[in-house]
Design a protein around this nucleic acid. Sequence first.
DNA 1: CTACTGAGTCAACGCTCGTAGAATGACCGG
DNA 2: CCGGTCATTCTACGAGCGTTGACTCAGTAG
Lengths: 197, 197
Amino acid sequence: MADPQPGSRAEQRRRTEDRILDAAAQSFFAVGYERTTIRAVASAAGVDAGLVMHYFGSKQDLFRRVIDAAPVPESAAEPGQAAEEILAGLAGRLAAAPVASLTILRSMLTNPEAADAVRAGASRYIANLAQAIPTEDADLRAAVINAVLLGVTLSRHLLRSDALADADPQQIVDLLRPGIVALADLPKANPSTERKS
Amino acid sequence: MADPQPGSRAEQRRRTEDRILDAAAQSFFAVGYERTTIRAVASAAGVDAGLVMHYFGSKQDLFRRVIDAAPVPESAAEPGQAAEEILAGLAGRLAAAPVASLTILRSMLTNPEAADAVRAGASRYIANLAQAIPTEDADLRAAVINAVLLGVTLSRHLLRSDALADADPQQIVDLLRPGIVALADLPKANPSTERKS
DNA sequence: CTACTGAGTCAACGCTCGTAGAATGACCGG
DNA sequence: CCGGTCATTCTACGAGCGTTGACTCAGTAG
């Protein structure tokens, strides 16, 4: 398991694989799954397309390898202060979102594999979050929170929506705080909503 | 401008174009721009692929025609009750989102044209909304609201995220109300945010 | 009745894609 | 120094794509 000799065969292989993986991640992120071609990835990595196939088996497998590198956001907070944890996590993702995560997001609407990855990641995140919310609609609340974070992250990094892309992360977080707090921390405090019908 | 004879040439043409447009919208919506093929659209519409080209010029043009049919959500509310208008609009979109709109959303991450459409629509919506918010960060607030709505709509209709897909629209709206109100209606009421730095 | 227009089909093109497999040549254990 | 292993390249195949242009045939105008 120790590092092999630098310049050795095994080392060289690892370096090349990493270069391919990097190039693939970048392309998947930039243009999505369908518009990414093995040839382009190979060329960007400075190797032949056949080598990519040789190492990763197929385009789908290569994609899998790339999105497997994405971290699943954790959130183990206790009731009453889950909101601040959520917002802190968002602040980080707004400042500099990891490429792998954004790659998944970009491809989630066209690639079933990516959609599954998003759902799986969201499920874990939601389940984790839900148990910090002591209401019977905790699951829904967590799902809504997740959807909100998705929308904001997407708008800022992928859609590059005007105002959002340029804004200070902390400012966005501050604007979202009341809503997230209402969703995560003050589940029963709903006295002011008027009744209709 | 009157309807031509039923069964006439012009009428027949209009019907065929509509059938193609419908099939295209459905396919773009279901699988996105890249995975939609002209052949499949033509086949679904019961015509030859060449005819699609003859009528619409190119795949990109066909796509343009489809997304041009999407309605741009309007929102002309006065300050102090913009939130309820926003939420009412969302409720409608949660209950049954128009296919054309979802088509754009599905393709926005892979197709520049769709991304532009989303940005353009969002810009109008945001600008419209912003003038109902009497703060200097009105644009950012409106953009955040738009992002939230995007995330929720996306999660429910396109990602079909577990809890969100099955939930009652009104319940989702109720959960989002505090946050939207805080963003749109109570711009100055921010007394409880702690100061940092 | 005739000439024309236009809806719709058909076959094929050129291209790009993912993928396969043989070939090459440097490295490394014995 | 020899034999094999393995990283890497090259060439090519087959499929599917968007797109083209020639064609057929029914409706329509004069």
